[in-house]
């Protein structure tokens, strides 16, 4: 990308529809085929969105922005999502800003000079460290399981093997009442066949699986459909599954709205 000709100011003009057809065409071409140019355009767009949310655009630019980025309910929702991320970061930063908590730091300094408080503070610190270590260990365990799931479900590892259970989406009559799955009989893991009932077919899918009533979920991001696109296979290691009800959300990569939900019971 020619940095001298296409700078951030020019890209901002482009995003607000202030450039001529020829220039617009040139940037759009670069956006589609040049990964560096794409990242640059998206970065400038990110700045523009931020400026709009902070109310620093001029009235005219604000109107141009709204005409492009806040037309549809989906676009307005995306803006609200971006705003929520910014608001969260600002609130977190404000709560840990020393300038805003100077009263509290004085209080802490006072604590530091009182030996009677040293023991409780040390005990609190130890608790924090232990809790932190447990949290880190759980995160590591979570990452290891996701890695294993990714390896099991890598496109290259798929062969036409026997299916342990075929699942219909819960929106289909009977889809929520499947026979319990017995993992004892399948030491090498289970293979689920998730039926995709939507008309649209997609080249890639991702699944999120969790045990019902548990918050922790695991994602598999590289699932491919069978050749006719009517089902997606998902492999799970046997040790991953314990007795209980499981929920799977399957979504099409690149389509925010195409999601199906499945449930199954592990019986042993």
């Amino acid at each position: 990308m020619d940095d001298e000709i296409i700078d951030d100011v020019f890209l901002r003009e482009f995003l607000l529809g202030k450039v001529n057809d020829e220039e617009r065409g040139r940037i759009e071409d670069l956006f589609l085929i040049d990964p560096q140019a794409k990242e640059r355009v998206l970065g400038v767009e990110q700045d523009l969105i931020e400026d709009y949310l902070e109310g620093t655009l001029t009235t005219a630019d604000g109107a141009r922005f709204v005409a492009r980025y806040a037309q549809t309910p989906e676009q307005r929702r995306r803006l609200r999502i971006t705003k929520s991320i910014k608001d969260w970061a600002l609130a977190e930063a404000a709560s840990s800003d020393p300038a805003k908590t100077s009263g509290r730091s004085g209080f802490l300094a006072w604590f530091g000079f009182r030996p009677a408080f040293v023991l409780p503070l040390a005990a609190t610190a130890i608790i924090v460290i232990v809790v932190g270590a447990v949290w880190l260990s759980r995160r590591a365990e979570h990452s290891a399981i996701e890695k294993e799931l990714a390896q099991l479900n890598a496109p290259s590892s798929f062969r036409d093997g026997p299916v342990s259970l075929e699942l219909s989406p819960v929106t289909v009559r009977g889809g929520e009442s499947q026979a319990p799955l017995n993992t004892r009989a399948s030491e090498n893991g289970v293979e689920l066949r998730l039926l995709w009932i939507q008309k649209e077919r997609y080249p890639g899918y991702q699944a999120t699986i969790r045990r019902v009533n548990e918050r922790q979920s695991f994602s598999v991001r590289t699932l491919q459909p069978e050749s006719d696109g009517k089902a997606i296979r998902l492999k799970l290691p046997a040790h991953f599954l314990t007795r209980g009800m499981y929920q799977i959300k399957l979504s099409a990569v690149g389509s925010g709205s195409s999601v199906e939900e499945y449930q199954f019971m592990v019986g042993n």
């Binding site: 482009f14 529809g17 956006f31 997609y202 890639g204 491919q224 990569v253 690149g254």
Partner: peptide, 21 residues
Amino acid sequence: AAMYVQLRHDLAKTFVWRQCS
């Protein structure tokens, strides 16, 4: 397939820039 998904996303973006509803 990855290019297909990416191109769909990118084209939709260019339509946004051109005020398509």
